[in-house]
Write a protein that binds this DNA or RNA. Structure first.
Lengths: 197, 197
DNA sequence: ATTTTTCACTAACAATTGTTAGTTTTGTTT
DNA sequence: AAACAAAACTAACAATTGTTAGTGAAAAAT
């Protein structure tokens, strides 16, 4: 065990993973070649395999890392007893918006390319998503019961919220029109405050 | 073995296009092989080329057909002088919802796979989209000026609206929870009525 | 009945795919 | 300086890709 275990290796691998996220987003997973990725990293394709096991593994790492971050934040909000239902929802929506603004590559890959994961990873992923949606519905139902969220179909609202933020993808391409803060406030106003009773 | 049902070439080609839309949605454009498509149609891969010029042409046909349908409806609404700004917006949002419900394959391909079109088609497509967004912003600005839409950033609202309906993709996989009509009403309530002054 | 058109077939192509094997270079530890 | 591990390289593989050429059969037109 000579070298400090995986320190340099870890950095290199992280670089590869982030380059992969960018390419997977831009070109899509199936049409991103290992030679494309190698070129981005500045190395021959075969050399990548000193750091990763397969192309598929890269996709799994990206998707599950993002999924875990969403889950962790939801857990945190759920546990916060000082917030009303509507405030919880707002915190969650703001987190989604910030993820889409700050980690566009990874989040878009998670949204658009996760279907290219092999089993059982894709199945697990879809299941985790289903659970996440159900927990979000619970937050809304709680808010409706306690009285500061107006009467709606929780499932429809969750679908709408989680998809609406995807619009940030297009904002990214033409940033000039409007700042990140303005965009966030407008979306929150439109999507969350509109639910106040 | 001769021909199957094709009285007219047009029918056969339309069958191929719709099968392509379904496969492009499910598997993505790059990883849908011509042999997959041929199998779906019940024919050998080479035989497809009696009806189409290339795989790329299929994608173009799907994307521009959908884009044209959206443009046509927007033009119709714009021309209707009896509607207020908010009513126009509602009509447009309802049309989007119905397109996502009734023509999911084509609409999803248009949203997710259009980037795989070669130039100049992709450029033209992105430009058409930009124009569409700008026209939708105009509808909102008109509504704000005439007084029945509350003060918002039109660009942010358009992004939100156009993306929110993408949630219907997930509804399609698990239809049981809620009917198409309920979903539409909930979305309209959430997305449009929330904008009323 | 004969010609013409339509369309499916088989076979094959050049290019590209992810990945492995084996070797050499690089940088660190003893 | 010698030894060792990490990570780069070249070369090659089997499989798959979209597409073309050429042929024969069925349908439509004459």
């Amino acid at each position: 065990m000579g070298r400090i275990s995986g320190r340099k290796n870890g950095n290199r691998r992280e670089m590869i993973t982030l380059a992969a996220a960018q390419l997977f987003r831009e070109k899509g997973f199936p049409s991103t070649g290992m030679r494309d990725l190698a070129g981005e990293v500045g190395v021959e394709a075969a050399s990548l395999y000193n750091h990763i096991r397969s192309k598929a593994e890269l996709l799994q790492e990206i998707c599950f890392r993002v999924a875990n971050d969403f889950n962790a934040q939801l857990m945190e909000v759920e546990a916060n007893e000082t917030l009303t239902g509507l405030e919880k929802l707002e915190a969650i929506v703001r987190f989604h918006i910030q993820m889409w603004i700050n980690r566009l590559d990874e989040v878009m890959v998670t949204n658009n390319e996760s279907k290219y994961m092999e089993e059982p990873y894709n199945g697990t992923f879809l299941n985790e998503r289903r659970v996440y949606v159900r927990r979000l519905e619970q937050v809304i139902e709680d808010g409706m019961r306690k009285g500061n969220i107006k009467k709606v179909q929780p499932y429809a609202v969750v679908l709408t919220l989680m998809s609406a933020v995807r619009g940030i993808e297009f904002w990214h391409r033409t940033k000039k029109n409007i700042s990140a803060e303005e965009l966030e406030e407008n979306m929150v106003l439109h999507l969350v405050k509109g639910l106040k009773k």
